[in-house]
Amino acid sequence: MNLFRFFGDMSHLASILILLYKIHATRSVRGLSFKTQALYVTVFVARYLDVFTEFVSVYNTLMKIFFISSSCFVLYLMKGRYRPTNDPSIDTFRVEYLLGPCALLALIFHYRWSFLEVLWSFSIFLESVAILPQLFMLQRTGEAETITTHYLAALGAYRALYIPNWIYRYWSEDVIDPIAVTAGIVQTALYLDFFYVYFTKVLQGQKFELPA
């Protein structure tokens, strides 16, 4: 565990706490893509099924349990308690265009031909594009609550921090994970546009608004 990865994980943890805070404070799930949140549940369940078969560390196990349970809780908040504040009519990204290609990629690229390993690959590919429905929604509405942009920034920072972590691991341990690294670079690249607006507007105290 190096500092890049540790702060990356902390940023991921923070993003979920910010998300829960946003829902609680505004008593609304407005501006959040249910599709993106449902994709994250799929990602975590597919990847962390190994929590029952592999033991890495207490930290690893606790984080896995947290990510699975918190993402399921967010889905419940969106479809249960705060359902009236959810607007599916602006959440129109076609997730089948993500699920199909990711399943195909996982069948082609994996480390071992076993159910859990192919599922692991699938989850890595799916995570890299899971934010697209949310970014698409942002693009469509052209604006976002500041707290929602902090959530996205923390999530993007988590991905960005994993990149120096991999460089460090390659240098210090001489190991590389081509599937995770390739998908991770793609995932981080998807945030570049968002980060540009976040740094030039939100962090200067302005509202997150895209040019018409």
Binding site: M63, P178, A180
Partner: peptide, 10 residues
């Protein structure tokens, strides 16, 4: 090892 990738990551 390399074969399994970084399975210790989240």
């Amino acid at each position: 090892g390399t074969e399994d990738g970084h399975k210790d990551e989240l």
